[in-house]
């Protein structure tokens, strides 16, 4: 299994991607695909393809972000929430919904800005502590997370319960329902601007899991690299969540599963983590849009699928989280 796990998950991702293109309330008829005016053609290219691409990208990107955070903080249960990215993005999105209404692009912009502001605040607080140690970042992240959550609650309290509050809650639960091609392209470009360098930096990211002194003695300029990696990861998370809303559990489950399968901390484990993330989100989104008359928010499904899978892997591998 270990030798072929990348190939197996690459095939699974490909299969999930293709199935996702054809699963949904409306059945795609292959015979009609040659006709640009047919419903099948329009549904496929206007709805299914952008949505499937975004789902695969979101799964891979969030899994990569989780993998990097777990490595950076030497903590197998670290996730993008840990330095306040997700709660910052939620607060930013909620702020835009309150100020400008449920405008997709403005909400996305607010989420991105909120996520980045949260990380910048985390970095500034960690620096104020006078140390570049991991513990300082984690504690600063906890503080920023709490601030963002408090702001979010404040905004929810003052939101119009009929429209704004529902929009905020729906955004927080995450969905690919309103994803369009015009949103996918810029989000994908931004996400790839973070994913590609992070993937290429995997060797250095692995060394950042060591203690600061140890990594520095192996030639890594730890403070600078940690900052670069944090900013690139934030770019990935915010560019995805700004379009999709929050997608729970992927950043935690996918990298953890990859580590349990490969028992390593290298580039291939990073890639496996991305493939697992992509499969999980593609499968969750396919179920979300085909089960029942109305769509199920994606986070409900990623948690329902991810948690038992994690328990299965833990039992199989005999691992604990300590």
């Amino acid at each position: 299994m270990k030798k072929h796990n990348l190939l197996i998950f690459a095939l699974l991702t490909g299969t999930a991607f293709i199935l996702s293109l054809f699963i949904g309330q409306y059945s795609i008829h292959l015979a009609d695909m040659g006709d640009p005016s047919s419903m099948s053609f329009r549904v496929f290219f206007t709805l299914r393809l952008p949505r499937t691409v975004m789902a695969a990208l979101a799964g891979a990107g969030l899994a990569l972000a989780g993998y990097v955070f777990q490595t950076l903080f030497s903590n197998p249960i670290a996730a993008p929430d840990i330095i306040g990215v997700s709660s910052g993005a939620s607060a930013g999105a909620a702020c835009m919904i309150l100020l400008m209404g449920s405008h997709t692009l403005l909400t996305a912009g607010g989420a991105m800005l909120g996520g980045f502001l949260a990380v910048m605040l985390t970095i500034a607080l960690a620096k104020q502590a006078g140390s570049d140690r991991t513990a300082s970042f984690l504690l600063a992240g906890v503080a920023v997370n709490a601030i963002a959550q408090a702001l979010l609650m404040l905004m929810k309290r003052s939101a119009d319960p009929e429209r704004q509050l529902a929009s905020i809650e729906y955004w927080i639960m995450g969905s690919f329902a309103s994803v369009t091609l015009s949103e996918v392209v810029p989000a994908a470009i931004l996400a790839l601007c973070g994913i590609v360098p992070l993937f290429l930096l995997s060797k250095t990211v692995s060394l950042l899991s060591l203690q600061t002194d140890e990594a520095q003695m192996l030639g890594v300029p730890v403070a600078a690299m940690r900052m670069i990696v944090l900013i690139l990861t934030t770019l990935v998370v915010t560019s995805i969540t700004s379009i999709t809303g929050l997608i729970s559990f992927i950043g935690l489950i996918a990298p953890h599963a990859a580590r349990l399968i490969r028992k390593n901390n290298d580039r291939r484990t990073m890639l496996l983590s991305m493939l697992i993330g992509a499969v999980l989100v593609l499968v969750s989104d396919s179920i979300a849009r085909s089960w029942g008359s109305s769509e199920i928010p994606i986070s409900i499904l990623t948690s329902l699928i991810g948690a038992p899978y994690l328990v299965f892997l833990l039992r199989k591998g005999g691992h604990t989280l300590d």
Partner: peptide, 17 residues
Amino acid sequence: GMTLSCTALDAVLMGAH
């Protein structure tokens, strides 16, 4: 300070960084 799983080979390879 290694706390995450890593093969012995990859641990040695870190020296080549």
